[in-house]
Nucleic acid binder design. Structure first.
Length: 204
DNA sequence: GGAATCCACGGTGG
DNA sequence: TCCACCGTGGATTC
């Protein structure tokens, strides 16, 4: 059975500098980078996102009924302007650091609004279509109440839990989306949290 | 006893 | 065609 191991605390980063990152190798070529309180103006970013993103409540057919997706979502497509200048700066800083090749940038920004502890995402990997062997990178900025992001190897194994707090940055890279899956489980008590996931292209 | 985790369910889309 | 995907709720485990 799984037991929880907790990621060691990464040092606090100097706003938008990626010098203070802590990398955790997960195995099988997967890794996770964490920088605590990385995003400047996190309070303002949260307030702006909550207010200005055109949040969409989706429904999903699950077996015999139509069910609410337990979070609000919106995707900013390729090179669409983001609603807060700090997010534009974050996208540039992340692209420069992780995708130094001139032609590759973080382009899409998927936003999720977890209104309270009942909102969640089930286990999944962000693969590029079925059976893809292409590795993709996902950079996640979290604002608002802290929530746990859990990671576990596909096919079973010990799971890893990462706390995503206000202004924290988490980057999943290497084979992470292919060989591992992740989830944000429901919890008994939590306030609102918004995550912004930057990807090199538009896949959700 | 409460919280976390596991499991089974089946329509959909790539 | 076929199979991985995903939210819920009850059971089970911690």
């Amino acid at each position: 059975m799984d037991y929880q191991s907790t990621l060691f605390e990464a040092p606090v980063a100097d706003g938008l500098s990626l010098a203070g990152l802590t990398r955790r190798e997960l195995g099988q070529g997967a890794w996770v980078d964490v920088a605590r309180t990385w995003l400047p103006e996190a309070d303002d970013v949260f307030a702006t996102l909550a207010r200005e993103v055109p949040w969409r409540a989706e429904k999903r057919q699950m077996y015999d009924r139509l069910v609410d997706v337990p979070r609000l979502v919106h995707t900013y497509m390729v090179d669409e302007p983001l609603p807060h200048p700090v997010l534009e700066r974050a996208r540039e800083a992340l692209s420069d650091h992780y995708l130094p090749e001139l032609l590759e940038r973080f382009r899409t920004a998927g936003c999720c609004y977890y209104r309270d502890g009942r909102d969640s995402v089930a286990w999944h990997g962000d693969t590029i279509g079925r059976g893809s062997t292409h590795d993709t990178m996902v950079a996640i900025v979290s604002v608002g109440d802290p929530r746990r992001l859990q990671l576990r190897p596909r096919g079973g194994g010990e799971s890893v839990s990462v706390e995503m707090g206000h202004g924290d940055l988490l980057v999943m890279g290497g084979s992470c989306q292919r060989t591992w899956e992740h989830a944000v489980p429901k919890v008994a008590a939590a306030g609102p949290r918004i995550s912004v996931q930057f990807r090199p292209f538009g896949v959700f």
